[in-house]
Design a protein around this nucleic acid. Structure first.
Lengths: 244, 244
DNA sequence: GGCCTGCCTTGATAAATGTCAAGACTTCAA
DNA sequence: TTGAAGTCTTGACATTTATCAAGGCAGGCC
């Protein structure tokens, strides 16, 4: 049976997807079937991938580039999260065959693997190992949002920024400097504040040894940042080591 | 094999648990085993059931009464949600064998069914139908917190209150009145504001035909409430019909 | 170069929200 | 009954956050 998917999906990409926890334990043949039904699409920057409220047609996976999930109400907009390779998104909507609750747009030019929702649901029905991997994936997603909600409800803006900076600092090697991976307008929205307020929060943190130069941030003391943030492992989920 | 669980778990209670989506499709014998290992505990009001940070020993199910999930940071506290019968809670922590991210306390005297976490995980490993029910349950939980986060980030306090009142109004029969199911201090925390601010938000809504007398709320126009809330189906998830 | 445009910052001001304090009221138990 | 404790409301005020406006600065384009 010929593939209906994009032939541009290289073996290398398949291996990357296969290495995700979500797909690792899946039956090999079924995995191939799933990917053969999938499309690998290239998108330029700032392209809307998903509008909230639409029925969920595809499970999306960022192979390359950067994707922002956001939500709107009337004229307002809020960034929910920013995804880097390799991550899946809107899995819950796909499984429930429900409408998307969040919108998605590319931030940079990106390659997105799109697996038809029907196939994903069928694979879950047929493949017991896959069903259990989905459980783990969803439990992780759920706990992620719970942490986020605690962050929003229990911390002030400056504390959220301090926590974010400490997180990035660790992630990027904990050597006194970090580069903001996203522009400040988006960062502000993600942290639940306005861009103006983010600027002011940065200047508040100057007295704690934080110096900002464009996207570059110098950090004098990670511990002081954590103290300002009132660091709590049950909110922050900092990595142990830098991301590779 | 004799039951190690509480003999007080009546058949009637078993049927109630069995009727939950989470357990409905489970193998019958396995379901019995699971409940035989469980404890049905009675707790007085205001008793801590779970402290965040503790390892997850049991899946909890509110059979009777009322349970609040909350989170703390330093001296601060925030109500995450309030659970009524019959609901499970902290499923994600149990499945991941991770620490609880939220604390739980009874609000009223309650009966809680506690299923040892090990047994739940074993049941998920052994029972394919159960694993798939868990997927659905977790997907629902995930989408619930996403809605909540949108509510927090995209709405003001007054809008959140208006939305809450509209929700309760529908739930309770949409006949111009409703009874607040929880005290105002907790409601305020759940809606992300202080009790003083909740009071003021209520008076702001007076001009929209909302009259408060203790826990009783008279609503002149549900539509006006929804308009004030900037009602959006992708945030609110209002019920179609009153809860029975 | 010159001129956009968009991003970011800063200041002034407004609005939203939180804090403190006081008092009315209820509940509960001595 | 009385007192104590807790809840809720209200007012005064402080803080936080948002909005509006202006200007600096960098990158892209003619």
């Amino acid at each position: 049976m010929p593939s209906i998917g994009d032939p541009d999906l290289r073996d290398e990409d398949k291996q990357i997807v296969r290495s995700l926890n979500l797909f690792r334990d899946m039956d090999a043949e079924r995995f191939d079937d799933l990917l053969n039904a999938a499309f690998l699409q290239r998108f330029p920057e700032r392209v809307i991938l998903i509008n909230e409220g639409e029925p969920s047609d595809f499970l999306h996976i960022v192979i390359d580039g950067c994707v922002e999930l956001f939500a709107t109400l009337d004229g307002r907009e809020s960034t929910m999260t920013v995804l880097t390779p390799v991550s899946t998104f809107i899995l819950a909507a796909v499984l429930k065959d429900a409408v998307y609750l969040m919108s998605a747009r590319t931030r940079t030019a990106s390659r997105i693997l799109m697996i038809p929702a029907k196939n994903v649901r069928q694979a879950m029905a047929d493949d017991d190992a896959f069903a259990r991997s989905i459980v783990t994936e969803l439990a992780n997603c759920y706990r992620g949002v719970v942490r986020n909600q605690k962050n929003l409800k229990l911390r002030t803006s400056v504390e959220r920024l301090a926590s974010y900076l400490a997180h990035q600092h660790i992630r990027q090697g904990a050597n006194g400097k970090l580069t903001l991976p996203i522009d400040k307008k988006t960062l502000a929205s993600m942290l639940g504040m306005t861009p103006e307020n983010l600027s002011r929060s940065f200047s508040t943190l100057r007295r704690a040894g934080v110096t900002v130069t464009g996207p570059e941030v110098a950090v004098e003391s990670q511990d002081e940042l954590k103290e300002i943030a009132r660091h709590a492992p049950l909110i922050d989920n900092f990595p142990d080591k830098p991301a590779e």
